[in-house]
Design a protein around this nucleic acid. Structure first.
Lengths: 211, 211
DNA sequence: CTAGTGTATATTGTATACAATTATCATTCA
DNA sequence: TGAATGATAATTGTATACAATATACACTAG
């Protein structure tokens, strides 16, 4: 077995995370240690570590002595996630508008163009990736590492729920992204915050209905 | 060895968490697996699990192949934590005011009286415990499990920083708690939110200075 | 005397083995 | 027939042992 710097556990976690977020493993699917161990060609120890990491992120449920499964997010929990995420995206957009980071803004502009293109062509893989990039870079522009970290996890968990609507809502999504970025560039904290918060709520409504 | 339901890892995590939050283990202290293993009388496996859990909570730093240590929170990170926590305490107070939960409010009233008593007598242990209870119950009143969970972790991490000031600021703390609860009871969402947010910022300023 | 190198030691990462618990399912008794 | 029961299998929890890596420090070369 070849060894590299990031521990096996880390890499297993990465692999599992991807398989969950791309819906190759679906909510409720059991994650049996022995089984994963064979499948990925490592012993159970790194598998266990990975499962704990993912459990901490909320992507996996683990019950003592009964094993792990892909998290199944109930509509109630989804609403809770949305409420928190909407608030934090608002805070972050406010901070981004305040801090005014030209380099990141330039990158965001590029992502925006690519996103609009993908929205017209309807390429789902690209849309998912670009949407992630947009929110990630925006979080970077907020310059708050704690916020960045929490939002990353919240985004993953909500994406587990909203995945179905990525294609359908693509146009609105990217038009809203555009408005948010404009407000950030203008340094209009209040408007950036309101738009970002509203953006999350609207994306949620498309899947959960108004609540 | 006696076995009980919560796994050893869980109990080790609990034990370590307490020792960190009570400052028996200080920021920067190394957490050597073998050493903890002997000290707590279990093998290294549960120790590792516990360290991962605490790392996910931000109470412990672990670097691959170099081991774990009690998290040392820089002033910059502390400011970031405060910014996020202030916002979320605001959101939660708003939700608590909206949802109007008589039973929890009754409990909060009791904690408040006990807190004011402790503030006058200056008993630090009681102050820490009651402060935790107040915020925990308030979080419960918000009825958002995601928010509750995130705030618990943020509170632990900020408490690591603010610990020094618990006694000094006790009077103001509890007077502010009282105002927040009043706004919650009155169902005044906006006022509850503003007060809760301001409360966190003020507690932070006592330690970090205005930022 | 300092920089660099190599070896010893400490520590973490992983694998294997076994113990404890939970789930499954056939069987028995009412 | 259906619920309770017990044996068996599947699975997780923990311990021990070993491999890989990082750190510390003495030693050599310049």
């Amino acid at each position: 077995m070849k060894l590299e710097h990031p521990s096996l556990g880390q890499r297993v976690a990465e692999e599992l995370r991807r398989s969950i977020l791309t819906n190759r493993r679906k909510p409720g699917d059991r994650l049996v240690e022995e089984q994963l161990s064979e499948e990925l060609g490592v012993s159970r120890i790194p598998i266990r570590e990975a499962l704990r990491v993912l459990a901490a992120e909320g992507l996996v449920d683990v019950q003592p002595r009964r094993g792990a499964s892909v998290a199944d997010i109930s509509p109630e929990v989804a609403r809770d996630l949305v409420e928190v995420r909407a608030t934090l995206e608002g805070l972050n957009a406010r901070l981004a508008a305040r801090h005014h980071q030209p380099e990141i803004v330039a990158e965001l502009r590029e992502v925006l163009t690519a996103g609009n293109r993908a929205a017209r062509s309807g390429n789902v893989d690209d849309l998912v990736r670009l949407n992630g990039e947009f929110h990630d870079k925006l979080a970077e522009a907020g310059r708050n590492t704690i916020l960045w970290d929490i939002m990353r996890v919240l985004r993953e968990r909500t994406s587990l729920v909203f995945a179905v609507n990525t294609a359908r809502r693509a146009r609105e999504d990217w038009s809203e992204h555009s408005e948010i970025l404009a407000a950030v560039i203008a340094g209009d904290e209040e408007r950036a915050a309101v738009l970002a918060t509203r953006h999350v709520h609207r994306a949620a409504e498309a899947t959960l209905g108004k609540g």
